[in-house]
Amino acid sequence: MHIVASLEQSLFLELAITELEEKGIAKNKIVAVPLKKKAGNSRIFDTIHRADGISLFDGAMILGTVFAILGAIYGTVLKWGPVLWGIIGLFTGFAVGLLLDLLINKRRTAGKKTKPIPAEVVLIINCDREQAEMVEKVLWDNQALGVGRINT
């Protein structure tokens, strides 16, 4: 029979595979398929996996820095001083940059909304019926997102 599982990529994945091997599953009975993500499907907020292409952080940080510099400059002649105006500038710039990025992104990705799927690897393990429960437990213990059986 076969056990199929989806996992995120992390060291847990390799821990799971090596544990299965230690428990007697031969290497050629384990198949791992790293999934390629659909290109050009941009998400509104950056995830752990991407910051290039369309990032909401670029505009926010750049405008944040610009406004912080301006705040620090004009703070020398304004009442609250350069420290406070610098910080106010940083937050204002960040907010304005984020809003601009969101607006531009919305226009660019209108009508192309897809939810991100965390699954990054599909594991297929060929094992005996008696081993199935052990295999499933190893997978669940190593943060598998989902595990299923194919009874053949």
Partner: peptide, 14 residues
């Protein structure tokens, strides 16, 4: 690494 080590051609598929 996974592609080089865990995609053996003699794996039995369902």
């Amino acid at each position: 690494y996974l592609k080089a080590n865990y995609q053996s051609p003699d794996s039995k598929m369902p």
